Simulated assay, not measured.
Amino acid sequence: MLTSAKQYHKYYWKIAILALFIIGVSTFHYLTGTTHKYHGLHEIYRRLYYVPIILAAFWFGLKGGISCAIVVSFFYLPHVIYQWGGSFFTNDLPKTLEIVLYHIIGIVTGFLSQEQMNATAKLRHQAGVLAQAEEQLRHADRLSALGKLSAGIAHEVRNPLASIKGTAEILSDKFKPGDKEYEFVEILIKEVNRLDTVVADFLDFAKPKLPELKLSEINNIILSVLKLTEHQMAKARISLKTHLEDTLPTVYVDPEQIKQVFLNIIINAVQAMPDGGTLEVKSRMDSSKILCVFSDTGLGISKDQQKNLFTPFCTSKKKGTGLGLAIVHRILDGHKGEIKFTSEENKGTCFTISLPVRDV
């Protein structure tokens, strides 16, 4: 059934059609004479009232059928009393029972229509669930394939990187700080370290570790991550606001993995505010879940990027791997948690992480 004003607005034209039909038929009733030669027309008009009742039941279900039957009776009853010369009861029983018949039609048709609506809604819900499950399976297949590919590439790349880094460190010992060659070697070591970090991200994504659940304080994890990023936020001219609920229960999580989740979210927020801004961090209880909310006043996420935000290798950063949020999503899946977000370009982004409070 329709419950909101917006939903009712969608069907205003149907209500208008029903009203015009009922008023039209009633007008013909009252304008047509009541002598014997017009009785055939009145019989037709009486049956025409079935049309809006059936339509109302078909469009709006049981309530629609009953409501329309009541309205039709309201319009039809004065005519009957007038035609019968002021007496409600008459020897013409079909006329007396016509109003009862309107309600029977409204109830029966409305009931059948309502059952069909409920069945259709149930099928649509099941279709939505199946579609979501199918999409999750496809997503899992893609992740599995990408994971195997990433693991293979990462292992092949990491060994040569270690050799290059070792060679560069040996070369750096032969030059003094300030030499042009020393500067080149330092750049080489820096870039090798950066590539090693990328490879580590690939390996984290390709071979996720099972969470080692421990009884933990979520606020303590948040504060430890904020301490780690304190210097980076100060350097980026980002002001921090925290609203951490101090009555949160302890929860079984892998502290290191959840720390990685929070760290990725905060680093993304810092990078989204190149000209400074505000990061607001909140924690609170919501039913049987702990909610951790991270809101920034940064550049926001475009609508195109929002569609694939948690898809591996999808990134708008020049130096990003596109695995940060994919890893976050995978870690939270392992904790039976969820991550949601809202974002508006040039206004900011808000990530909400929910973690269930449960026994192991």
Rank of each mutant, 00 (worst) to 15 (best):
F184N: 10
Q257G: 05
I222T: 00
I265M: 10
S172A: 14
F184H: 06
F262N: 12
L226G: 05
N193H: 00
F184W: 01
V192N: 13
T278W: 01
N219Q: 12
L279D: 00
D254E: 02
K227Q: 15
R194W: 10
A200V: 05
S172I: 08
K209D: 13
E245D: 15
M273C: 00
A234N: 09
I170A: 15
G276C: 03
S239T: 15
H231M: 09
E245P: 02
E245M: 12
L188P: 04
D254T: 05
I267M: 11
K176C: 00
T229C: 05
G178V: 05
K174V: 04
D254F: 03
Q232N: 12
D196H: 09
D275P: 01
D204I: 02
L226R: 05
S216L: 05
L223Y: 08
K180H: 13
I266D: 02
I258K: 07
N193G: 03
K209H: 13
D246M: 10
K214V: 04
S224F: 08
E280H: 10
S224I: 04
F175I: 03
T197C: 04
N219M: 09
L226K: 06
E212S: 14
I189Q: 14
D201I: 08
P177Q: 06
V261L: 04
K227R: 14
L279V: 09
Q257M: 14
P255H: 03
D254I: 01
V261H: 03
D173L: 11
Y252G: 07
H231G: 05
E230I: 01
V251E: 08
F205A: 10
E256V: 13
V185I: 15
I238D: 08
E256K: 14
L195I: 07
P211T: 10
T242L: 01
K214L: 07
V261K: 07
T229G: 03
I221M: 04
V261Y: 00
N264I: 01
D196F: 03
G277I: 03
K190E: 14
K214E: 12
E181G: 00
K259P: 01
L215H: 07
Q257C: 06
K259W: 04
E191S: 11
V199C: 08
E245F: 07
K241W: 03
